[in-house]
Computed example of a mutant assay.
Amino acid sequence: MKQKSNISVPDLSGRRAVVTGGSDGMGLQMAARLAEAGADLTLPVRNRSKGQAAVSSILQRSPGARVELGEMDLSSLDSIAAFGRTMQQAGKPIHILINNAGVMTPPDRRTTSDGFELQFGTNHLGHFALTAHLFPLLRAGGARVTSQLSVAAARGSINWGDLNWERSYRGMEAYQQSKIAFGLFGLELDRRSQAHGWGLSSNISHPGVAPTSLLAAREELGRAQPTGGRRLIRILSRLGVTGTVESAGLPALAAATAKEAQGGQFWGPSGFQHLAGAPGLQRLYTPLEDLDQARRIWATSEELTGVSFPAESQSRVQ
């Protein structure tokens, strides 16, 4: 039996939202809901034609929506920095940032333009750098930052001896590492905001399991056909065992917009095995509980990306 889940999104008129990975799948579903609620929406995209199709889709659903595209490749630190400069030049505070984009298990090891293993470099380091570059605007908006993880982060570890998997590439383990690192960052961001008076909050979410484009055929990942796992997930989704593309984005949407959502929380589906169902609070995955690991990945990420967050309170953007 197919599960039905939905949430109410509060009025977001006058609030600016930025969503990565918002040009298709659950990211597009989240973006459409934010725009429908009145948010001024910015979608940073790598593929402009795909982004324009997403904008058209949103406007068909909400003709009065305010949505704009930005150019950004999350696998390029230069591109992320350029997008950050464009946003800062515009000077508009950001109230919601959903770090949703990601790549999953290329069959062979691939790297970003900066030489990082693709999943670690995109899923974690790219979003770390993006959040840092947008930091003044996030402070100005008293933003809520929501970072999208995966059920894969429930197990695994960070391969400190070979962060970029140069000696022995194992796609799923590298994916787990990227999401664990990303989750540690999302939680540490909230702790540091509280400690330093940054005035923003940060939480994390996961979508459960759904037939999104992560495991679809993707030429840029060297995957000519959808994985067997995606075909199975599609069948389970139709049976209601796992979620849908529409339901998968609801935990992040709730984490980013619900009045009861707070910094440091972990949101995900509340159904069987947290595969699907209505959004709710989750027990933190064991790999995300280690504060020393969180501080270490923060320092390592600053070193690798060359960007940093201030240690002390700074003036807000006017």
Rank of each mutant, 00 (worst) to 15 (best):
residue 142 G to I: 12
residue 65 A to R: 04
residue 134 L to F: 11
residue 311 A to S: 15
residue 206 H to I: 03
residue 93 P to W: 13
residue 134 L to D: 12
residue 213 S to L: 10
residue 236 L to H: 00
residue 173 E to M: 11
residue 264 G to I: 07
residue 52 Q to R: 15
residue 196 H to E: 13
residue 314 Q to Y: 01
residue 47 N to T: 12
residue 140 A to G: 14
residue 143 A to G: 04
residue 87 M to G: 03
residue 79 S to W: 10
residue 275 L to K: 02
residue 256 A to P: 12
residue 211 P to S: 03
residue 254 A to M: 11
residue 291 L to I: 14
residue 221 L to Q: 10
residue 154 A to N: 13
residue 64 G to L: 05
residue 125 L to D: 04
residue 27 G to H: 04
residue 237 S to R: 04
residue 291 L to D: 11
residue 264 G to Y: 06
residue 53 A to W: 04
residue 183 G to S: 10
residue 245 V to C: 00
residue 158 I to V: 14
residue 9 V to D: 07
residue 316 R to E: 13
residue 181 A to Q: 09
residue 281 L to K: 14
residue 94 I to C: 10
residue 73 D to H: 15
residue 272 F to C: 01
residue 23 S to G: 05
residue 133 H to V: 09
residue 282 Q to I: 09
residue 272 F to H: 12
residue 157 S to A: 15
residue 175 Y to E: 01
residue 2 K to T: 06
residue 177 Q to P: 08
residue 99 N to Y: 09
residue 148 Q to K: 00
residue 283 R to K: 15
residue 71 E to H: 12
residue 35 A to K: 09
residue 122 T to W: 03
residue 76 S to P: 06
residue 261 A to H: 08
residue 159 N to S: 06
residue 296 R to C: 00
residue 313 S to M: 15
residue 116 F to Q: 11
residue 65 A to I: 08
residue 67 V to R: 01
residue 52 Q to S: 12
residue 67 V to W: 04
residue 189 L to I: 10
residue 5 S to Q: 13
residue 151 V to Y: 00
residue 283 R to I: 11
residue 91 G to N: 05
residue 180 I to K: 06
residue 76 S to W: 11
residue 72 M to Q: 07
residue 136 P to F: 06
residue 215 L to S: 12
residue 40 D to S: 08
residue 14 G to N: 11
residue 293 Q to W: 01
residue 259 K to F: 01
residue 208 G to S: 08
residue 309 F to E: 13
residue 69 L to W: 09
residue 121 G to S: 05
residue 28 L to E: 12
residue 274 H to R: 11
residue 95 H to K: 03
residue 101 A to C: 10
residue 313 S to N: 14
residue 155 R to P: 00
residue 31 A to Q: 04
residue 214 L to S: 04
residue 160 W to L: 12
residue 238 R to Y: 00
residue 317 V to D: 11
residue 259 K to H: 12
residue 204 I to Y: 04
